[in-house]
Simulated assay, not measured.
Amino acid sequence: MKTEMLNLEKQRRTIYALGKKVDFANNEIADLIKNVMKQAPTAFNSQTTRAVIAFGDSHDKVWEIVRENLRKVVKDDEAFKTTSAKIDGFKAAYATVLFFSDMDVVHNLEKQFPTYADNFYDWSEQAMGNSNFAVWTALAENGLGASLQHYNPLIDEDIRAAFDIPASWRLRAEMPFGSIEQGAGDKEFMADEDRFKVFD
Rank of each mutant, 00 (worst) to 15 (best):
T14R: 10
T14S: 15
T14E: 08
T14C: 12
I15N: 02
I15H: 02
Y16E: 04
Y16H: 13
A17N: 12
A17W: 09
A17S: 14
A17F: 12
A17R: 14
L18H: 05
L18C: 05
G19H: 08
G19F: 08
G19I: 07
G19V: 08
G19M: 08
K20H: 05
K20I: 02
K20A: 04
K20S: 09
K20L: 02
K21Q: 13
K21V: 01
K21F: 02
K21C: 01
K21T: 06
V22M: 07
D23I: 11
D23H: 15
D23F: 13
D23P: 02
D23T: 14
F24N: 06
A25D: 11
A25T: 09
A25G: 11
A25V: 03
N26P: 04
N26R: 12
N26I: 02
N26F: 06
N26S: 11
N27T: 15
N27S: 15
N27L: 13
N27M: 11
E28C: 03
E28A: 07
E28H: 07
E28Y: 03
I29T: 00
I29A: 00
I29V: 03
I29W: 00
A30D: 09
A30I: 09
A30H: 09
D31K: 10
D31E: 14
L32R: 09
L32K: 10
L32E: 06
I33W: 00
I33A: 01
I33G: 01
I33M: 00
I33P: 00
K34G: 05
K34N: 14
K34P: 02
K34C: 11
N35Y: 04
V36W: 01
V36A: 07
V36D: 02
V36Q: 04
V36E: 04
M37S: 11
M37N: 10
K38G: 04
K38E: 10
K38W: 04
Q39F: 09
Q39R: 14
Q39A: 15
Q39I: 01
Q39L: 13
Q39N: 13
A40K: 07
A40L: 06
A40G: 05
A40Y: 08
P41T: 03
P41I: 02
P41V: 01
P41S: 03
T42Y: 10
T42M: 12
T42E: 11
T42W: 05
T42G: 15
T42A: 15
A43E: 07
A43L: 04
A43N: 10
A43C: 09
F44P: 07
F44Y: 15
F44Q: 15
